[in-house]
Write a protein that binds this DNA or RNA. Structure first.
Lengths: 209, 209, 209, 209
DNA sequence: CTATAAGCGAGACGGTACGTCCCGTCTTAGA
DNA sequence: TCTAAGACGGGACGTACCGTCTCGCTTATAG
């Protein structure tokens, strides 16, 4: 991810203190302020003072730049909650994702990447699949565990559930017709889980209410 | 939509057989073959023989062009099935949407439009909201009817259901990790409905199987 | 000049009161305010409310339009003064021309026409020659008369004198390095005449040779 | 004038043998063949193989391009003759200017620049003034010297003389009613000088006043 | 007193050029 | 060796006018 001169906080950079850092920071700022389409290799170069050539050397595409921005944030925040309760786990993931999307650079970065992949089918599909997979894996692990614990039925179509959770969130994010609230996350998880709970759990839930 | 010399099918065009038509057809072809990002006002003009100026006169943006392409197909195909059964209705809609997205120009057009709206937040958000709303309305009508018929619970969060159905489909479309099959549609509808069926219907359904 | 419906003051126009007039007035205004290059058939049409087609029907070129504007003013103001004294006559002409150029639409119109003829050599050279000739004729008549009266020598190169008078004025007009004042006109006429006066008028002539 | 990679004749260019040179040469050719109005940044780019962007980078305007073309020729040819005789000096300058205008690219370039300045008053007036001044300075120097030598009167209105000489030439150039011959230059110089010679040179001067 | 032709408005159209933004590649020079 | 600096060829943008055209509406006069 950091070709050559990695810069771990505290360590001294090989070069003038963070060519990479300056570029990324500038990119993040542009992304936050002006959105993906206004993010331009040219502008990053101009605003950051890093030469265009250098930027191109590190990130062949602005998509690549965004992948790095996204992963830097998402990698830090997206963890397996493992609370012991499937509903709780899923709510946690949903809320984290929603926060990432609406409050951090990961939002515009991710959205931009989807846009990129969408309009350049094939070309950049690879990276999208790449890190979308990571997110899927997380949810998959959570669901498998729930099956193992008997919280949801074994025949549950895991991928379908993942699509449903992720899709509903993304859909609302894209269409902006309604806010991505905590209440929404709760309702979504409840709706989806009610379609795959095991009878035991189902009964138990009601009693808890 | 058709300013000035309208061309109603069957009627003879006032002008040399469809400036509008030629442009749209060319755009559709480029869209199908090369995707949204390769769709260029310049190319449409060059390939169709319609002057760039004329194209800009009708469609201020390539997004606008795509909206028209999309609506022309979607408007023709997306109807309220009204089969009398909620599951059947939703499956029908899902399948139609999936077919539109994967087999017609509406697919790349729609995807491109989302991409556009995503990377140009605000600016073109309007048109997206515009025709996304149409699609939502259709499903909303279907769901309201089901509530009225007592098939699903009255407290059902209609918007949530719409997001879930539409989102899951779109998500799979975007990430291409799995096919948009008829089986997928069935499973999706079943999953979602199981979260909002009324007790009566729930029991009845099993018996019908 | 006025094909078809001429509009003599007092007479009722055949059509809606002065299509021609409105167009010309608008053109004059644009010319005065924004200069020749901003004078555009399109703009005249838009601002005057006269259809572009109509304008093109009357004036095939914006040059044609300007010729008409120029002649309307110049035709009214440029007359043979015939004061009986060559210096006085020439001063009068110079001053009139200077006034036309600096205080009326004839200025920008004339300048624009020269510009046009300059950059489109050949094409519009005709009209330039056309009305430049009129101006030359006027001065030529004045000079011939002076020769006849014995004020200036018979061998005087009339064309050279015309070029010198007109040229100096135009040069100063173009380069704007100094004002086109009455004093300038006087000095110019004096300078030029001193080169062609007859011995009677100025006995010294012989010795100069 | 030559930003960055300067190309002094004799020196080897840093880049592929003269982007600048190719563009200028092409421009000169178009100018000579088709005139100023057909000279187009687009065409220069297309014919020279130099990218439009690159051309715009060097010359913000086609006027700027022409200034360079003009100066390249004029700078080489317009020198102070300093023959020791005012009439001879002026004749020399006149003839050089006439040759420049009628036989070299400087002709159409200069004419185009005037046209430009005329139709875009203010905007490009600056450059016109700029290099018109150089020409004026040359003549001014020659005249001052003549005053110093006592060839012409000290009170001579130098600017008026310059306007007269330059104007007459330009006027004839613009109107094309008569050729710019050597004979014309002689006559012009004689006419103008006869208006400012000192009594020593021409004792009659006093009596003319 | 009507038909008809002319003048006109409206504006679609194909087209050329504009001047700008970004792309991604390349060369040069300096640390 | 990595980098800053920036020239370069190129594609597309969206705009301004160009000059041509087709279409109907209006009106004045010729039949």
């Amino acid at each position: 991810m950091r070709p050559g001169n990695r810069k771990i906080p505290g360590e001294i950079s090989h070069r003038k203190a963070g060519t990479r850092g300056r570029a990324l920071a500038t990119a993040a700022e542009i992304l936050r302020r002006d959105g993906y389409s206004r993010l331009t290799m040219e502008r990053v170069a101009a605003k950051s003072g890093v030469a265009k050539t250098t930027i191109y050397r590190r990130w062949p595409t602005k998509a690549a730049l965004c992948v790095e921005l996204y992963l830097e944030v998402a990698g830090r925040e997206l963890h397996d909650p493992d609370t012991g309760d499937i509903a709780s786990d899923l709510r946690h993931i949903c809320n984290t994702v929603m926060r990432l999307q609406t409050r951090t650079v990961a939002g515009p970065a991710f959205i931009g990447l989807i846009a990129e992949a969408l309009s350049n089918p094939g070309s950049s599909a690879s990276f999208l699949a790449e890190f979308a997979k990571r997110r899927r894996e997380l949810t998959r692990r959570v669901l498998k565990r729930a099956i193992h614990r008997g919280e949801i039925r074994a025949e549950t179509d895991v991928d379908l559930v993942i699509d449903t959770l992720g899709g509903a969130t993304t859909f609302r994010l894209l269409q902006r017709h309604a806010p991505l609230s905590r209440k929404f996350a709760d309702a979504l998880v409840t709706l989806v889980l009610s379609g795959c709970k095991t009878p035991q759990t189902s009964r138990a839930r009601k009693e808890m209410r």
